[in-house]
Simulated assay, not measured.
Amino acid sequence: MTTSPARSPRLLLTATVVLVVAGVVLLTMPQAPSGPATSVAPRATDSTTVPSATAPSSRPPQTGAPTPATASTATAQSVSASALPPHGEGIAGDAAIQKPLENVWPADLSAADEHGLLAAGRGLLRADATGIGRTKWPALFGDPDQAIAPAFATARFRIQAAIARSDGSPDQAVVHLVWAGTDRGGTYTDRRITDWYFTRTSTKGATTWTPQPRT
């Protein structure tokens, strides 16, 4: 019977140390998840379900009273962008034109000046378009017998909206009018725009707004 040689104590000690180290390494290694991998990144929001905010305008705010060109453009754009009545609506729809004009170009004249300017502006427009009342302003319309024939019939002429505002100076003003009429060819058109400009003069304490010739 053969007897196996005795194992060396050094060999047993070395084997024990190796096993201990291997066990520690296995215990400290991270374990892979057993289930399917899941993403932890946040889900992108559907752009069709969340409306974007409107970017603020980059245009600098305006200060002071608008110039005639700016004001006329602004009023025209405001009226066209507003909920206006359909063309040919008649007198019932005029208020919907007047209100946007007043909102976009706030009053900046005294009530007396505004009232006088509106009356003059309306009269001038009627005289210019239909010929009625031209004798009141001979400096503007000349000799009635040699004046240009009116381009619009009196029957369907109507002023739809009007405002009077200062024009860059306390002594300058403009009357902005929106109107409708039928021309000599029989074509009816509404929402026409005309501006009349005025200069204030004072004589012996009396103030007068003088209309300026149209260029």
Rank of each mutant, 00 (worst) to 15 (best):
A162P: 03
P5W: 06
G64R: 11
L109H: 14
A111H: 13
T73R: 08
D190R: 03
M1F: 10
G88F: 08
P86H: 04
T73E: 07
Q98K: 12
T154K: 05
F198H: 02
P144V: 10
A32L: 04
A129T: 15
D128Y: 12
S34T: 07
K204I: 08
L19H: 00
A206V: 15
R10N: 07
G133F: 12
G116N: 12
R214V: 14
D94W: 15
P33I: 00
W209Y: 06
A71F: 09
T194C: 04
R156F: 04
S202Y: 01
A32D: 02
P144M: 06
A173H: 04
A120Y: 09
T187M: 03
T135F: 06
L124M: 11
R7H: 05
K136M: 10
F157Y: 10
V175I: 05
D128S: 15
A164Q: 04
R7G: 03
A147Y: 08
G168M: 02
A53S: 14
P213H: 06
H115G: 11
N103L: 15
S52T: 15
T38L: 07
P211E: 03
A111W: 04
I163S: 01
D183L: 04
P5Y: 05
V17M: 02
Q62F: 13
A206K: 13
D145V: 01
H87K: 09
P56V: 10
P61K: 11
K99A: 14
R158T: 10
G133N: 10
S4D: 11
G123C: 07
R184L: 11
T67G: 14
K99Q: 15
V175W: 04
A55T: 15
G142V: 09
A127T: 09
P138Q: 06
L11P: 00
D113P: 11
A15W: 06
